[in-house]
Amino acid sequence: MLSASDLADRLARDAEAVCRHYLSAGHRAGNYWIVGDVANSKGKSLYVHLTGPRRGRWADAATAQHGDLLDLVRETCGLVDFRDVADEARRFLNEPRSGPAESKLAFLRSDDSLDSTPVERPAGERARRLFCMTQPLSGTLADSYLRRRGILRASLHAALRFHPSCYYRDLVTGRTTSYPALIAAVTDRIGTITGVHRTWLDPNGDGKARVDDPRRALGGLLGNAVRFRFPVHGPVPVMIAGEGLESILSLSHVMPGMPMVSALTANHLAAFRPPAGCQRLYVAGDADAAGRHGIEGLSRRAQALGILPLVLTPELGDFNEDLRRLGADRLMTNLRAQLAPEDAQALLPA
């Protein structure tokens, strides 16, 4: 039985055939296969290395997704369980291939038959499938994790859920396992789930899981965000947009009435699309170079839309660090000095 790393290596040996099969909307350009995204859309955001030491590695410049060809099989086929991913990879490796035309056949759905209808599962559909497998946050390991970080009312947010055993794959070694995870729904302006963000947790309750990258996103993040206290219908005249999930949850802890979004990364913060009717947009960035990039990018976007951008700055590295180390009262004092007077009066306790 081939291991995960063996399967990835086998797929990488014939990387172009894998791309022609699963990403048939793309094309070869030099030493790369170029396509729009893992949903096999036309475009040039996603690229796969076809030669050299990184053969079989891929990345999507628009969504920051990346991995090897086993991850690519998972994403393009909309699979969640590793067993299903491995079965699909094994079927492909056993499939006879005579050339590019044959690679455009539908995916093998069983050992001895072909489904004549190609299966295309957009990233948003895969994210919704994972979110549907979660359970309410209250009383779970994820709820405890956030409480230890000073965020006491996270279970009131419908965007946050818990998965008791979420699939995780090490992108370097190929080793697969599962951990409990905090799952956050990424949504568009009308509330449709376009992606999810996963934070894998230590099963013994000791913070995040001991893995190289305990946070990963799946699906469409660009222009979207995790939303808190955000109305689906009607204008949003005043709101906060920030980078990290826990940083925004810390702000929501002391300003529960303010609509807020977490764009998850500085690049995605810069690309966030403010809602209709927004008049004042507070941009909450982290105190580092990436955070400044997100603040500047979103501020320019807001100004172009006629929205007044106002920056909220933490005293320490981010607002969760402020909440944990300085306390809620000190955090509110810092925010009161930065908010417009009418917002401070309406949203913060006297």
Rank of each mutant, 00 (worst) to 15 (best):
P100R: 12
D71A: 07
M255S: 03
P309M: 11
R90Y: 01
P349H: 09
A123F: 01
T187A: 09
G205D: 04
L182V: 11
L11Q: 03
Y32C: 05
R55L: 06
R128P: 04
R292M: 10
T134I: 07
A127S: 09
P96S: 14
M332P: 01
L269G: 01
E246F: 02
P122Q: 00
G150Y: 00
A344F: 13
L339M: 11
A29C: 04
A4M: 05
L312F: 09
T187C: 06
T134D: 03
L93P: 04
L11C: 09
R13D: 13
D202P: 02
R273V: 12
W58Y: 09
S45P: 02
L105H: 11
A159P: 02
D288M: 14
V261P: 03
L171W: 01
A61I: 11
R198T: 01
D213R: 14
G56L: 03
V261Q: 02
D212L: 12
P214G: 01
R83C: 09
S5A: 15
D60Q: 05
F228M: 05
D318Q: 09
V311F: 08
Y47Q: 03
V186G: 00
L46E: 00
I307G: 13
S24P: 11
D288T: 14
S98N: 12
P96Y: 05
A158M: 05
T117G: 02
L347M: 13
M133Y: 03
L130R: 08
D87K: 11
D286W: 12
L137E: 08
R109Y: 07
A337I: 05
P274G: 06
Q279G: 09
R300D: 07
G291M: 08
Y167W: 07
E88V: 12
E246G: 06
G277Q: 15
T63K: 01
T177Y: 06
D9S: 14
R336Y: 15
A8H: 11
I183P: 00
S24N: 15
L171R: 10
